[in-house]
Simulated scan of single mutants.
Amino acid sequence: MDFTPTEEQRALQSAVRDLASSLTPKDTGSGAPAGPQPFDADAWGKLAEMGLLGLAFAEDKGGFGASAIEVTLAAVELGAARVTLPYADAMAAAAALDAANSPLLADVISGEKLVLTAFGESGATWSPAASARTASGSELAGEARGNTDLSAADAIVTTAGTGDDVEVYLVESPTVDGPKVTLDGAPATRLGGREVLDAALALGNVAQCGEALGAMGAALTLTVEYLKTRKQFGVPIMRFQTLTQRAADMYVGVELTRSAVLYAAMALADPGEGDDALDLDAIVSRTKYLVGTYGRLVGQEAIQLHGGIGMTAEYAVGHYTSRLATIERTFGDTRQHLAALAAGVGDHTSVDVV
């Protein structure tokens, strides 16, 4: 499989890199801000103006006719620049609107409306197939939690239980308190069933894995540069074999993750049909597992190899590690995706390796 980007994709990467660098959180004297930040409407408008919100959607729906591959490449640059905008979450919501042929998708792509997801529940482990929220006609009851502050959202995409399955709903003008949404009696529009949820989670997960890849690659670059310039006993610390071996482990983790993320994006862009259809759930779970496993390795090693400076707010390594930890727990953590993969082992026949 050829992971080499096309000329158009390289141009997209370069343009997004330039934009993302202008959106990187700035150090105001006490270190650059880390963690969740207030929604920046101006920065979001710049993403919309560049067309990043419509990359994965058809032109007749207001999109740009690209695919999940372009979304992932853009997300890599945003992750490398530490951009704190909810890009992956918005892509998940947009994918749900697209699967349901909602007219609201055009406003999302243009940046006029911000729609985010709220699939989680307070005090409950992640499970896309279960929801304590209930639906009665066109009204929802219960609470939901998003992945970020939902105060700026014009609408949210959430789920409600219907017996043994879930259905996906759009709630406009939601009642929110940070990431928490109160749905008691909230009017909602049904978007569809499990197929809509699967479409949302697939694109959302692939996009956020792209962000994680960008963060991992940037943390590796910072670490290698530090090993080359930091001296101890009169020589660069890159001369110490143990440190270079640990940096090599980081490099291997980044490259394995890169292959998995790009393959997931390509699979989502062209999943095949019939007997040739790819198992997207398994592909996404494998990617999330690798991102969680190697993201933790790269983040922790980057901090330790930097020593004390890696723990300071002024240095970006800790910020990347914090972001990687957040991504690892969004839309299912490493253990949940590993359990999903383990549950499907019996679906495969044995293979004799010659």
Rank of each mutant, 00 (worst) to 15 (best):
G193I: 12
S14I: 04
S22P: 09
T189F: 04
E7S: 15
T221H: 11
L305Q: 11
V83P: 07
C209R: 02
R145E: 09
L203Y: 00
A313N: 11
G29R: 09
G210R: 04
V284D: 03
L114D: 07
A219M: 13
A202L: 05
V108H: 04
K288R: 14
A135W: 07
A132I: 07
P174K: 03
S14D: 12
P103V: 09
T28Y: 08
M1V: 05
G79F: 02
A68M: 08
G120V: 05
V76T: 03
L12E: 03
V71Y: 05
F3M: 13
E328G: 02
V235C: 04
W126K: 10
T321P: 06
A325F: 04
L280R: 03
S138Y: 13
L227E: 14
Y315S: 05
K46T: 10
T244H: 07
D352S: 12
E301C: 02
L52G: 03
K228V: 07
A11V: 02
E139N: 14
D2Q: 13
D18L: 08
G111K: 09
P128T: 02
S350N: 13
A277Q: 11
A90L: 05
T293K: 14
D60Q: 11
I283G: 10
G272K: 08
M91H: 07
L297A: 10
P5L: 11
A68D: 07
T321K: 11
N205D: 00
R10A: 01
R230E: 15
E70F: 06
F64K: 10
A316C: 00
E314V: 07
A160G: 12
R230T: 14
A200W: 03
M311R: 15
C209I: 06
V345R: 14
D347Q: 14
P179G: 00
T221F: 11
D107H: 11
V298I: 14
L52D: 00
A282G: 05
G234Q: 10
L47P: 07
T326L: 13
V115R: 03
R82W: 00
G111D: 09
G310I: 05
V354A: 15
G51T: 01
M50D: 09
R194N: 14
E112S: 14
L213M: 06
A94C: 02
G253E: 08
Y169G: 07
F119M: 06
